[in-house]
Design a protein around this nucleic acid. Structure first.
Length: 394
RNA sequence: UCCGCAGUAGCUCAAUGGCAGAGCACUCGGCUGUUAACCGAGGGGUUGUAGGUUCGAGUCCUACCUGCGGAG
């Protein structure tokens, strides 16, 4: 009985550097380029799983976060409830971030050493230690389908010297992540395998992460060192952390085309609708971002003609939908006036409806991106999509 | 009718006789591997009215107006 590879990636169409592909995980096929909604604490905030599965959204894969789930409810709870999929009631693919991003985002609460990172828990103030080994162990126990290596995300404005030190630490942590991950797989710690039911036999996949800040030479070195270790897919991390947009596209434009052609390329934490299309144009296959969910909760809608700030008084009597050309349930049923009323009243339905629309817009945009690549019209799509975004149809 | 208490931003309230503020509300902005139903900025005033004391009054004095409580 041979074990199938944890993940396979097949490119089915190209248009310039853009590619349409099929990413096959043990929990189903994911058409790429794909946007992955972020579900940090075991929930895509303000969204029901039924909605994520509905044809309208049809999210094939969502994120979970190692650091946050490890702190609360704690890995013992999730393990005893059968792993993350069973715990949250989601049977499609899950990707877990390693906690590496929290090394950066919780800067004031942590201390980095060669061994790992010491965090002061924001939940109860306790001291917690996260390392490549701990992160791999937690992610195995969560049973996610794609595991991310434990990396260090350096500040956007880091000098070359600091970026190098950070990139080299990430490389050593990548090696340790790989080793620990392999051990855990052979020990069968992965709770997502479900051998008993026979429904799933595949193993978890492990992705490596390219770092190096804004320095292209460091990025290239990081890529070659990461590839040398060998992973099931590769991510570009450490972008969209405050740097100029031109810096991000310089890095992506330089790194993405040099990444292995037969494996998935994941641009972590990006981005706006325009960023997604621009990333695809440079050869990226996978994206995740909190923008559709977070901004939905804070009163901002993404539409085909740009951003709509639902809070603005000018919508108070506006009976139009958020986006005339959006077919989502929120746009079919509700006016800007009503959504503004809900937001201004502090009603939780405002978060639910705006998040739904934003996710629908992001996921539909990616559907159209995939189709345009398959039909060879991606460049035309990119131009028209971008022009319309800045046209402001208010 | 008398006694007491209170009148300050749209609302609830601050301000030893020394530059009239806060929270909420409102208006606008931000948010990119979520410490975020969050964060930031802005506009808002004849301090109930009329006098007086004082170098200087939201603050002290007098009268009046309004509200609340008590007595009769």
């Amino acid at each position: 009985m041979s074990t199938p590879p944890p993940i396979t990636f097949t490119v089915v169409a190209r248009d310039g550097n853009a590619r349409a592909g099929l990413l096959t995980t043990r929990r189903g096929v994911i058409e790429t380029p794909v946007f992955m909604p972020v579900g940090t604490a075991g929930t895509v905030k303000a969204t029901r799983f039924e909605a994520l599965e509905s044809p309208e959204l049809d999210a094939r894969i969502i994120l979970g976060n190692t650091y946050h789930l490890w702190l609360r409810p704690g890995i013992e709870t999730i393990k005893s409830c059968g792993g993350l999929h069973r715990f949250i009631g989601w049977d499609r693919a899950l990707l877990t971030d390693s906690g590496g991003f929290q090394v950066w985002s919780l800067g004031a609460l942590r201390k980095i050493t060669e061994e790992g990172t010491e965090f002061r828990s924001h939940v109860d103030g306790s001291l917690r230690f996260l390392s490549p080994e701990v992160s791999m162990e937690v992610q195995a126990e969560l049973g996610s389908d794609i595991v991310m290596a434990f990396d260090e995300c350096a500040p956007a404005d880091a000098l070359a010297e600091d970026s190098r030190r950070s990139m080299e630490l990430t490389a050593r942590w990548a090696q340790r992540s790989r080793a620990k991950f392999d051990t855990l797989q052979s020990e069968g710690v992965d709770t997502g395998r479900r051998d008993d039911a026979g429904a799933l036999s595949g193993a978890q996949a492990l992705f490596g992460i390219v770092q190096g800040g804004a320095h292209l030479d460091l990025r290239k070195e990081s890529l070659s060192r990461t590839v040398q270790i060998g992973f099931d897919g590769y991510a570009i991390g450490g972008l969209s952390v405050g740097e100029e947009k031109s810096v991000m596209w310089d890095v992506v434009g330089e790194v993405a085309p040099e990444m292995l052609a037969n494996q998935a390329r994941y641009l972590m934490g990006v981005g706006t609708p325009e960023d997604l299309v621009e990333g695809v144009a440079r050869g990226i296959d996978m994206f995740d971002c909190v923008l559709p969910t977070r901004n939905g909760r804070t009163g901002q809608a993404f539409t085909s003609h740009g951003k709509v700030n639902v809070k603005n008084a000018q919508w108070a009597l506006d009976t139009r939908p958020l986006d005339e050309s959006c077919g989502c349930g929120v746009c079919r049923r509700h006016s800007r006036a009503y959504l503004r009323h809900l937001y201004m009243s502090g009603e939780m339905l405002a978060s639910v409806l705006l998040t739904h629309h934003n996710l629908a817009f992001f996921l539909d945009t990616m559907r159209r991106v995939r189709q345009s690549i398959r039909s060879g019209d991606f460049m035309k799509f990119r131009r028209e999509f971008t022009e319309r975004l800045s046209a402001s149809g208010d």
